[in-house]
């Protein structure tokens, strides 16, 4: 793995706590989690199901709010930001890749990749050009006009990667991006994700069950029962 030069972290999480449920049914999922991610760094989080990996990812991705603790992106405290600010930050600075790709089935590959760009304010022409470039990079340009549900699992995940990278986000948050793929496709998708993110200058936080993939990241953080293992 390449050496990451010293620079201020792009993402900082400090003492994050999160729980689900109310009263007696309340269960703590994250217990004082702290994390830093440098620009361009690839960080994997590995652990068994239910250990809180995905919950942490959703907190870092501003899809959910922690019970306590702080999240800073680009030195800016965002954990208590308003709904509107969090939404804007997601569009500008974050990209998501999920296990089940979550493409919009009624749209083509090209339209799926163009969506975040259109939301960011790009013209249709610019968004299409950018989306086509990403699809070329991910070897999907021939299938750009195909509906999402007409693509194979590996192809759909590559489209999801292209969509996550469309706005050149500072951080890509990937939740089991290869969990639904066979070993060959897993490696291919992982390589494309890391390579494309590096080309775009994006950092990656990758949640995975797969220890082989996790170890290929710049840094691997094992997690158990809502905490990072020492």
């Amino acid at each position: 793995m390449s050496e990451i030069p010293s620079q201020p972290p792009i993402l900082q999480a400090k003492d994050l706590k999160h729980s689900f449920g109310e009263g007696e049914a309340r269960s703590t999922v994250l217990q004082e989690i702290s994390l830093e991610l440098k620009a361009g760094e690839t960080c994997s989080i590995i652990g068994p199901s239910g250990c809180g990996k995905s919950t942490l990812l959703y907190l870092l991705g501003l899809l959910d709010k922690p019970d306590s603790g702080e999240i800073k992106i680009n030195q800016r405290l965002v954990s208590e930001a308003s709904e509107m600010e969090r939404t804007a930050i997601r569009n500008e600075l974050l990209g998501f890749v999920f296990q089940f790709h979550f493409l919009i089935r009624e749209l083509t590959a090209l339209e799926n990749v163009s969506l975040p760009l259109r939301k960011a304010g790009d013209s249709k022409k610019d968004a299409t050009l950018r989306a086509e470039k990403l699809l070329v990079d991910l070897d999907l340009v021939d299938k750009r006009h195909r509906l999402a549900n007409k693509l194979s699992g590996g192809e759909q995940q590559r489209v999801a990667i292209a969509r996550a990278l469309a706005t050149s986000p500072a951080i890509v948050l990937a939740d089991e991006p290869t969990g639904n793929l066979d070993a060959r496709n897993s490696n291919k998708v992982f390589d494309l994700l890391v390579q494309s993110a590096r080309e775009e200058g994006s950092s990656i936080i990758l949640v995975t069950h797969n220890p082989d993939l996790a170890e290929r990241a710049d840094r691997c953080l094992p997690m158990l029962d809502g905490r990072f293992e020492e």
Partner: peptide, 16 residues
């Protein structure tokens, strides 16, 4: 609901 969640994760607001 799933598509809505994806749009929201991409930065689409509640109003959008």
């Amino acid at each position: 609901r799933r598509d809505i969640a994806i749009l929201r994760s991409m930065g689409f607001s509640r109003g959008d």
